[in-house]
């Protein structure tokens, strides 16, 4: 059996996944109880949880796909573990490449790692490289929240606008990337081009009328599903476009 996917590795992966679920469940219960104290209805909180879960399905499958891309070199278990805790594909790929270079391996992720020492080193580099937020949060988060509390306590109107502006700034970065960002040269469809713009506008095109219908006819139950539905429908548009439009047109990326 491949040492990268032996029973011990699967046991380790299962333990990490269990830890994440238990921790999330703990915070979920605490927040739910506090929500009840604050007078939030069970329906609102239930809708939040269901909508969040639905919303997560497609991106989570995309994360799963990135696990597979790393599996060729590292086996399936280590990428699973790394993308379950803190992980992010761009960090992990960079960390593994850096670890391999640290041991003089030039082939990168193209070839399966057969040396246990290099595999273990990759695990150390990937982990130590990404743990810093967990050191920062216990030291900084309470202070950051206090500072925010002081600003928002003074002027609630500005506080609301400030939060909206911060969200918009974040969303703007991703929209700008879909319109004008260069992608990974080795991945077709990663850069700004026909597909990214088509999908972006399709998502907007589905979301706006759905939102209008919810507001106009006060359809409360539809509100939490408008966003995940728009996202999935936009992905279906991407799928259909890839099948139906001329191949040369679909792969067009103006930013490479």
């Amino acid at each position: 059996m491949d040492f990268k996917t032996d029973a011990f590795m699967y046991l380790l992966g299962s333990a990490v996944a269990a830890f994440c679920i238990v921790q999330s469940f703990f915070f979920l219960v605490k927040a739910w109880r506090q929500g009840k104290k604050l007078g939030l209805s069970s329906r609102t909180m239930k809708n939040t949880a269901v909508s969040a879960a639905l919303f997560t399905v497609a991106p989570a499958i995309a994360v799963l796909a990135t696990v597979i891309t790393l599996a060729g070199a590292l086996g399936i278990v280590l990428p699973w573990i790394r993308l379950t805790v803190i992980g992010n594909i761009s960090y992990e790929v960079t960390a593994v490449q850096s670890a391999l270079e640290g041991f003089g391996v030039k082939s990168g992720l193209a070839v399966a790692i057969a040396d246990r020492e290099i595999f273990t080193a990759a695990a150390w580099v990937m982990t130590v490289g990404s743990v810093f937020p967990l050191v920062l949060l216990p030291l900084l988060l309470k202070r950051i929240q206090k500072k925010i509390g002081k600003v928002t306590g003074r002027d609630t109107k500005w506080a609301d606008l400030m939060s909206a502006a911060a969200f918009i700034g974040l969303i703007a970065a991703f929209i700008a990337r879909a319109l004008a960002g260069a992608g990974d040269k080795n991945i077709a469809g990663d850069g700004a081009g026909v597909m990214s713009v088509l999908t972006l506008f399709a998502a907007v095109g589905f979301m706006l009328p759905l939102q209008k219908i919810c507001d106009k006819y006060s359809i409360k139950w539809l509100e939490p599903f408008a966003m995940p539905a728009s996202m999935i429908l936009a992905m279906v548009v991407a799928l259909l476009a890839a099948q139906l439009l001329p191949a040369n047109f679909v792969v067009l990326e103006w930013r490479g």
């Binding site: 502006a165 907007v204 979301m207 995940p228 728009s230």
Partner: peptide, 22 residues
């Protein structure tokens, strides 16, 4: 092709809600 466009789909839908209000 659909999974490659998950980010524009996600932020297009999310952005539409925010941009229409602000």
């Amino acid at each position: 092709p659909a999974f490659k466009q998950v980010v524009p789909a996600l932020f297009g839908a999310l952005g539409a809600g925010y941009f229409s209000k602000h």
